[in-house]
Computed example of a mutant assay.
Amino acid sequence: MPAQFLKLQRLQSLSLGGNRLQSIPAEIENLTSLELLYLGGNLITSIPPELANLPYLSYLVLCDNRIQGVPPQLTRLHSLRSLSLHNNLLTYLPREILSLVHLQELSLRGNPLVVRFVKEMTYDPPSLLELAGRTIKSRNVPYSPCDIPCHLLHYLDLASKCPNPKCAGVYFDSCVRHIKFVDFCGKYRLPLMHYLCSPECTSPCNSNPQSDAESEDEISVPADRLQKVLLG
């Protein structure tokens, strides 16, 4: 990108699509009057966080590139109305993107997160403290403030119920992050993130012959335990 362009502080529209740009310079933040930035059809692999420092940016087109991730700092683009990210290499979006309340268009087609089922699980085995806390909570073992130290009492109050309705378990710090797709208005497949107490909790859901949109676990999951991680 020509360095001269990055000094045009009154520039409102910049279109450099269909070139062979491999990166977006951090100095893009100098274009403080920019409202439209078109960089589609290049070889860009990443989005610099400095892009979030453009207060008037309303239209951002980054389609047909090789972008693998979106920086959470983009949540600062309060004027953003349209974000085109189709035909890239995205496998996820940060949940911070849901803070873009003025966003009217979000294009994601042609990314791995849309064209194939994404199922990622990360799990750290629970500590002995957590195992003890799970046992107390799941088996309803009676206890009182006089029986245990106050810090353990506070710890037990932090228990989160597993959202799988077929599981009566709880978790504290150790949980499974599981991405599952559900139908959205009959048009999109919307990835939702579950926080489950163990890897085994995914099995009953997968063996359920019902569709994702009609499954019992989706209906019963409390809103605070089911987190939307991206838009269709």
Rank of each mutant, 00 (worst) to 15 (best):
P2L: 14
A3K: 11
A3S: 13
K7R: 12
L8P: 01
L8V: 01
Q9A: 13
L11H: 12
Q12K: 15
L14G: 05
S15F: 07
L16Q: 10
G17I: 07
N19D: 09
R20F: 08
L21M: 07
L21F: 15
Q22R: 15
S23G: 00
A26M: 04
E27N: 11
I28R: 02
E29F: 06
S33C: 14
S33G: 03
E35Y: 02
L36P: 01
Y38S: 03
Y38G: 00
G41F: 04
N42C: 04
I44M: 05
I44F: 04
T45R: 06
S46P: 04
I47D: 03
P48G: 07
N53Q: 15
P55E: 12
L62P: 09
C63I: 00
D64H: 13
Q68S: 12
G69D: 12
V70R: 04
P71L: 12
L74G: 02
T75P: 04
T75I: 03
H78L: 13
R81E: 08
S82I: 10
S84F: 13
N88K: 06
T91H: 06
Y92F: 14
Y92E: 14
R95N: 02
S99I: 00
L100Q: 11
L103R: 08
E105Y: 13
L106V: 11
L106R: 09
L106A: 14
F117L: 08
K119Q: 15
P125Y: 10
L128K: 06
L129S: 05
L129Y: 02
L131I: 07
A132F: 13
G133T: 12
I136E: 09
K137W: 02
R139W: 11
N140G: 12
N140A: 14
P142I: 08
P142C: 07
I148S: 06
I148W: 13
P149Y: 06
C150W: 11
L153A: 14
D157H: 15
S160Q: 14
S160H: 15
K161F: 06
P163A: 10
K166S: 10
G169I: 02
V170N: 03
Y171W: 03
H178R: 05
I179N: 12
I179A: 07
I179Q: 08
V182T: 10
C185W: 00
G186P: 05
G186W: 06
K187G: 01
R189F: 05
P191T: 11
M193I: 01
H194Q: 05
C197L: 03
S198F: 00
P199Y: 03
E200D: 14
T202K: 00
T202F: 00
S203A: 04
S203L: 02
P204I: 10
C205P: 01
C205S: 07
N208H: 06
N208Y: 03
Q210N: 10
E216L: 07
D217S: 08
V221Q: 08
P222M: 08
A223H: 12
D224I: 13
R225C: 11
L226D: 02
K228S: 11
V229N: 00
V229G: 00
L230V: 07
L231A: 08
G232N: 09
